[in-house]
Each structure stands twice: as structure tokens, then as C-alpha cells.
């Protein structure tokens, strides 16, 4: 009985915190002149969405945002999976030092590091372009990815890989066929976390992108001052939809991976 009530309470909390705002914004974006104290809007209209979808800048920035987000997630996996595995199951020299360095971007204001890195990137010629932005997005994401994945590896006994090796399989097989399926929950969390962090970067993208790389947040904040509330609302809905798009993308990849896993 108590369990049921907790469930209802939790679901309603979730609804009011996360789903209701988005729904509200969505309605707001397709109405006109929906003001307090009206309970229901007077007229429905799609003007805000026409504004949004007629702007080529938005199209392009949508694509750029998703592209940067996905590449940042992939790079995070490539770096954080081996790093987290080594930190968890291995015994690398200077374990504490590595962990501290990985925590640094969370402790030190990222802005300070970004300023310094910007100068380096100008020298290297990767400032003001997408590659630079992708690299700088690793700064606020990688520490979290390593943390989440390390916690995942910590829960897995090292005997699994040993069992696989004594059976005579390569390290790669042990990793992709034995460890990875056990890591899926952590891999999911890390992926969505990294994508959302990358999605919400404004200052880092602005500095390193130098105005050349326009992701959604860069367009969004100026829009915020625009008088048209419906357009702002529509924009926000678009923003909220991106993680969902990412989830669909990730789940499809995981589905394909599982198919591959179950071949004999």
C-alpha cells in the first residue's frame, strides 16, 4: 500500500518537474495571446513554428549541435572507457594523481582553463572551428564520464576478464563480449549525461567557437530577449527534444550491438 503511494507521489513529482514544463511550453508555442487569467488559450496557431522552421540558421545550428554532441559522446567513450577500466581494475602508477587531474575541471572554474586553452588553440589553428569546440567540450564532460564508468567497472569482478582470457580469447573479445554488456547501464548514463552537458555549453562554445560555430544555445539566448513568447517557447521545446533524439540514436545502436552479440 505504502509502496503504491510512493510510486504515485514520485510519478506526479516527475510529471510536474519535467514533463509538465515541456508540455506547457509546447502549448504556449502553438497558441497566441494565452495570458493570465485565461484557463484556456483563445486561438491556436503555428506562427511560432513557422518562424522557427523558416530560419536556416536554426536548421544549421540544430545539425551542428547534434553533431558536436554525438562526437563529444564518442570521444568520451574512447577516452573514458579505457581510463576508467585502468583506474578500476588495473593498478596504474600514480592512480591518485590521475584521478585528481581528472577531477580538476570540476573543481577549477572551466572558464579559466578555457581562456588558456584558447590561446593554445589559436596557435594550433583549431580555434574558431568545430574541432576546437568539440575538444573544449571534453573539459566539462570527461571527468563525469570517467566517474560514472569507473563506478560501473568497480561493480564488475576482475575474474570475468580472467575467465575469458583463460578460455583463450583476445583482450578485445573479453572487452566487447564480456565486459561491455555488463557495462551497458553505466554506458547509457554516461552517454546521456555527456550529451546533455555538451548541449548546454554556452560560454565555452562562444569563446572557442569565436562566433563561427553556432550551436543551439548560442542562438537561444539572444532569442530569449525577443518579444515573442511563443517563439521562445517553441525554441525551448526544440531544446528539450534533442536529448530524446539522442536517446533514440543510442538505443538503436545498443539494439544493433545486442543483435551482433547474439550471433553464434
Amino acid at each position: 500500500m505504502r509502496k503504491k503511494w510512493t510510486k504515485i507521489l514520485l510519478s506526479s513529482l516527475l510529471f510536474f518537474l519535467f514533463i509538465f514544463p515541456v508540455l506547457f511550453l509546447f502549448f504556449k508555442s502553438i497558441t497566441f495571446g494565452w495570458n493570465w487569467p485565461d484557463i484556456l488559450p483563445h486561438t491556436l496557431n503555428l506562427r511560432a513554428w513557422t518562424v522557427i522552421f523558416n530560419d536556416p540558421l536554426i536548421y544549421r545550428s540544430l545539425f551542428t549541435t547534434v553533431f558536436i554532441g554525438v562526437v563529444v559522446v564518442i570521444l568520451n567513450y574512447l577516452i573514458a572507457l579505457p581510463a576508467a577500466y585502468a583506474l578500476s581494475h588495473g593498478n596504474p602508477r600514480g592512480k591518485t594523481l590521475i584521478e585528481t587531474i581528472l577531477l580538476l575541471p570540476i573543481l577549477v572554474p572551466v572558464l579559466a582553463i578555457a581562456m588558456g586553452l584558447h590561446l593554445v588553440m589559436i596557435r594550433l589553428g583549431i580555434a574558431d572551428n568545430t574541432a576546437g569546440v568539440i575538444l573544449i567540450h571534453l573539459l566539462p564532460t570527461l571527468p563525469y564520464a570517467v566517474r560514472v564508468l569507473k563506478a560501473g567497472f568497480d561493480r564488475i569482478s576482475p575474474d570475468w576478464v580472467k575467465q575469458s582470457r583463460t578460455i583463450g580469447t583476445s583482450q578485445a573479445a573479453a572487452f566487447f563480449i564480456v565486459l561491455l554488456p555488463m557495462m551497458l547501464p553505466s554506458i547509457r548514463s554516461a552517454g546521456i549525461l555527456v550529451f546533455v552537458i555538451s548541449l548546454s555549453q554556452y560560454v565555452l562554445t562562444a569563446i572557442i567557437g569565436g562566433g563561427q560555430v553556432t550551436t543551439l544555445p548560442l542562438l537561444y539566448y539572444p532569442f530569449f530577449n525577443s518579444a515573442n513568447e511563443a517563439v521562445v517557447a517553441g525554441f525551448s521545446v526544440l531544446f528539450a527534444a534533442l536529448p530524446i533524439l539522442f536517446l533514440i540514436l543510442m538505443e538503436s545502436s545498443i539494439y544493433l550491438y545486442k543483435q551482433w552479440l547474439h550471433r553464434l
Binding site: 575474474d159 580472467k162 575467465q163 582470457r165 583463460t166 583463450g168 583482450q171 554488456p181 555488463m182 552479440l261
Partner: peptide, 18 residues
């Protein structure tokens, strides 16, 4: 280990759960 003509069975069966 992977190149030795030896297989070790552990205390637990360690069958891959998935």
C-alpha cells in the same frame, strides 16, 4: 594466459550472464 593450452575453471561457474 590466452595463448597457453590451459583452461582454468574458477570456484564460481562464471557463465557470461547475457
Amino acid at each position: 594466459a590466452e595463448n597457453r593450452p590451459v583452461v582454468l575453471m574458477f570456484q564460481e561457474p562464471l557463465l557470461f550472464p547475457h
